[in-house]
């Protein structure tokens, strides 16, 4: 049977169409058409990247002593490689002297975390690097794996630096912290488990500031504590450590 000319041409077009479709969907590799195979390959490459920080737990098998000391002390949350740098190469080959992790004993190293900085959170132990046992290495008094002050910190500013410094320039500068807070002895060694008290009643301020008060130092700052400042606690308006307000 002889096909009409039109059908032949149609056949060619359909044939071409099929070739294109087959090529696109069956012959061409997916990597030519879609990004997905490239992405899968990338994931594989990413997972194969080398590790530099071995992780705190790997140190334990060879440095049990330091590990245990640290686990029980104030530095328990700090990874070993925070201070000793990336040590995967050292773990892989402990005899490679070139890969032995450094020990930072310079003062600046500890001060990077413990130097006083106003933005650090309340309660974080900070010292004034210019004043705190100047000229001596920190590690000569504090064991880096189990740092302990050999005596309880003398002053509250060690962990409440911003509050202490703020109060020191305020009109309350002459008031010791203990005028308003009762501090359990253990607060300076185990602060979170033994919190000091905080003022609870208006009487805590009124005893100096009420018009009936006789405290001579506060003579220039007297209010009628029964009516002044509605029923809010005094410290809901006045910041007790800087009562004159931010300038």
């Amino acid at each position: 049977m002889k096909l009409p000319e039109q059908m032949k041409r149609l056949g060619v077009i359909v044939g071409l169409f099929l070739v294109v479709v087959i090529t696109r969907f069956f012959l061409l590799p997916e990597s030519w058409i879609s990004a997905r195979p490239h992405q899968a390959a990338k994931v594989v490459r990413e997972m194969a990247k080398p590790v530099h920080y071995a992780g705190m737990m790997t140190c334990r098998q060879c440095h049990q002593e330091e590990f245990d000391a640290k686990l029980a002390g104030y530095h328990r949350t700090i990874g070993c490689e925070n201070c000793h740098g990336p040590a995967a190469a050292h773990v892989a080959n402990k005899d490679d002297k070139a890969a032995t992790p450094p020990k930072h004993r310079e003062r600046e190293f500890c001060l990077g975390c413990h130097g006083y900085l106003s933005s650090r959170p309340n309660g974080f132990p900070q010292v004034d690097g210019q004043a705190h046992n100047k000229g001596k290495r920190c590690v000569s008094c504090h064991d880096p794996h189990d740092p302990k002050p050999d005596e309880a910190p003398k002053d509250c500013g060690g962990c409440h630096g911003l509050i202490a410094r703020t109060k020191a320039v305020s009109t309350h500068s002459q008031l010791p912290c203990t005028d308003c807070h009762q501090v359990p002895e253990l607060h300076t060694t185990d602060p979170r488990s033994h919190l000091p008290t905080k003022p609870e009643t208006r009487e805590a301020c009124a005893r100096c500031h009420d018009t009936a008060s006789t405290d001579p130092a506060a003579a220039k700052a007297r209010v009628d504590s029964a009516s002044h400042g509605r029923t809010y606690a005094c410290w809901e308006c006045h910041y007790a450590h800087l009562p004159e307000g931010p300038k």
Binding site: Y53, G55, G79
Partner: peptide
């Protein structure tokens, strides 16, 4: 393992 930043966060 933990991300490096988490591993060292004190």
């Amino acid at each position: 393992l933990l991300p490096a930043c988490v591993e060292v966060c004190p």
